[in-house]
Structures are given as structure tokens and as C-alpha cells.
């Protein structure tokens, strides 16, 4: 079926099967940052922004993206570099496989919440699993990033 959407500002017109999920469509267009970590909507690795909101691209039909704006980390390189720098300074990316989905959610949080408390940060990101870091380094990176943003 015909689909017409924007990934990182670039328009894509294509023919997709009705059961193609968004992650597979996005990866097929060369945006390999988007990762799959489970089949049950629990890990958050595949998080992309649809019209600015974080969604699970593994559980969203590609056709549901029709007419919408999709953003992956490739589309926000500047913010990724900035926040990623704070991550790197903590060693908080570790294996890095969950980083793109996590960073997309952090960016969404920054846009949605003003001066979030530690509890609000943790709640907002609770759907992003990480098996390497124990989450502490990520929290340190977020706090430094938000501190800098509020200055």
C-alpha cells in the first residue's frame, strides 16, 4: 500500500505491506540507529519521535506513520552530539545498543517537561531498559545536560 511520510525532514513515498512495522521501514531507508530489543513493547530501544512524541517503532504499523514526521537520532545530530558528550564523559553509553532509543526519549523529555525532578526523569525514562550501566551514569549525564540547558 502507498505510504508517504517524512523521516528526519526527508520525504519518502513508497509501497509497503500492511503488516510492515515502522522500525523495518525506517531501517530499510538507511536509518540504522533504530534498534530492536524485544517483541513485547517493553525495552524502548526502538523509540523514535512521531510528530515530536516518543513512540515504539517496533509496535507501530508503518502505515500508521503515513502523513507524519518521524525523527531518529540521525535527524538530530547536534543534540545527539551535545547530550552524547555528557554520556561519553560518564562512560554511560557502554555497549551503546540502547543509546539511540534512550537519547530520543531524553530529547522528548527535555521538550515536554520543564526542570524535571529526579523522580520525574526516572518516571519518564522507565520504559528505556539498559542492561549495561545500571542507569546511574545515564542519570548523571542527564542532570549535567539539563543543568547546562537551564543556564
Amino acid at each position: 500500500m502507498e505510504i508517504n511520510l517524512w523521516i528526519n525532514g526527508k520525504e519518502f513515498k513508497d509501497d509497503v505491506l500492511p503488516d510492515t512495522v515502522l522500525i523495518d521501514f525506517i531501517r530499510s531507508k538507511g536509518f540504522y540507529s533504530v534498534k530492536r530489543g524485544c517483541e513485547t513493547s517493553n525495552c524502548g530501544l526502538c523509540t523514535v519521535l512521531m510528530d515530536g512524541k516518543p513512540i515504539l517503532s517496533c509496535s507501530t504499523l508503518a502505515l500508521r506513520g503515513n502523513g507524519h514526521d518521524i525523527t531518529t537520532i540521525e535527524g538530530i545530530e547536534e543534540e545527539a552530539l551535545e547530550f552524547g558528550g555528557f554520556m561519553a564523559d560518564q562512560g554511560a553509553e557502554q555497549c551503546g545498543f540502547c543509546s539511540p532509543g534512550f537519547i530520543m526519549t531524553v530529547i522528548a523529555m527535555k521538550n515536554e517537561l520543564t526542570n524535571p525532578s529526579e523522580e520525574e526523569i526516572k518516571n519518564y525514562l522507565n520504559g528505556n531498559l539498559c542492561r549495561c550501566t545500571g542507569y546511574m551514569g545515564q542519570l548523571r549525564a542527564i542532570k549535567k545536560y539539563l543543568e547546562k540547558g537551564s543556564k
Binding site: Y32, S33, V34, K35, T72, I73, E74, E77, A80, L81, F83, G84, G85, M87, A88, D89, G91, E93, C95, G96, F97, S99, P100, I103
Partner: peptide
Amino acid sequence: RKKDAMSLVTGKPVY
């Protein structure tokens, strides 16, 4: 910083 850190946090295709 890890040598590969910045490529990982910017989602580069390395896996």
C-alpha cells in the same frame, strides 16, 4: 571517553 563513545551515542551503524 571511550574511543567509540561518540559513534555509539550518535547512532552510527556499527553493529
